[in-house]
């Protein structure tokens, strides 16, 4: 079965975040870029599902020219095809992104290559909108399961495992379906040299956005003000233990 998986190029939030002068985006000049851990797991699931059913996993991104890096990475991790909708993501709100992904899905379907399943992350690591997957499902008129850790495909049905508030939920949705993925259900593989070589040869489908974006309604980004630190360091390593227990005694917790 054929699976489409959507990833977003995002600044690595473990690096120090600075903003562009117009405060509309994260300044990308001094940070690394990656995709979210949810999307890494979605790529792994897509590769496994395609593998198990003799189909293809296709990776899609809407992003700047540099986002080809994220597509090549996914190709090295088991995806067999890639689609790049080249655009400046800061001008695209979540509804715009969903509409663009839907346009690709519909066009591929019209050309005789439909997707049985579309996987996305539960939320993007930068904008954290928590909604592109659900909006995509509505745009395509398909059922959606949100926050799945594991997905299986059999007999025209997607079975998804979700960690619900009351216990482990098993969801069922008829195919074609949309599933958003939360990290932690599968261990993403490491790329092999062979995988990287093969990834370089894949011809990426280059596209332009199908619609004019409505925008994100962002007025500006802000950085939280730095707080002065008043920490008292009790020591380094095991030698600090007596000072720690002195503190316990002072606080009356032992």
């Amino acid at each position: 079965m054929d699976v489409l998986v959507c990833v977003k190029r995002v600044p690595d939030s473990s690096s120090q975040i600075l903003l562009t002068e117009d405060a509309q985006a994260v300044d990308g000049r001094h940070v690394g870029f990656t995709v979210s851990p949810h999307e890494e797991c979605a790529v792994e699931l897509a590769a496994r599902l395609a593998d198990a059913t003799g189909g293809t996993a296709t990776v899609l991104t809407l992003g700047p020219a540099e986002a080809v890096e994220q597509l090549r990475n996914a190709l090295a991790l088991g995806c067999g095809a890639a689609v790049h909708v080249e655009a400046d993501t800061s001008r695209f709100g979540p509804a715009d992104v969903a509409r663009e992904i839907a346009a690709v899905v519909r066009e591929h379907e019209g050309a005789g290559s439909p997707y049985d399943l579309v996987l996305l992350g539960n939320d993007a690591a930068d904008s954290g909108d928590f909604q592109v997957g659900i909006r995509l499902a509505y745009a395509l008129g398909r059922p959606v399961v949100n926050g799945a850790k594991v997905v299986e495909l059999a007999d025209g049905v997607a079975t998804a495992h979700v960690d619900g508030p009351a216990g482990a939920e098993t969801w069922s949705a008829p195919l074609p379906a949309v599933v958003t993925v939360l990290e932690g259900g599968v261990e993403p593989r490491y790329p092999t040299i062979k995988g990287r070589m093969a990834a370089r040869k894949v011809q990426i489908e280059q596209r332009r956005p199908a619609y004019e974006p409505g925008g994100s309604r962002r007025t500006r980004l802000l950085l939280p003000p730095p707080e002065p630190s008043t920490v008292q360091v009790l020591g380094k390593g095991a030698e600090a233990a007596p000072a720690v227990v002195d503190l316990f005694e002072k606080l009356g917790v032992r």
């Binding site: 975040i17 903003l19 690591a125 904008s127 954290g128 802000l222 950085l223 939280p224």
Partner: peptide, 8 residues
Amino acid sequence: VGGAALEE
């Protein structure tokens, strides 16, 4: 951005 920034 995982709490590193705020958006208005």
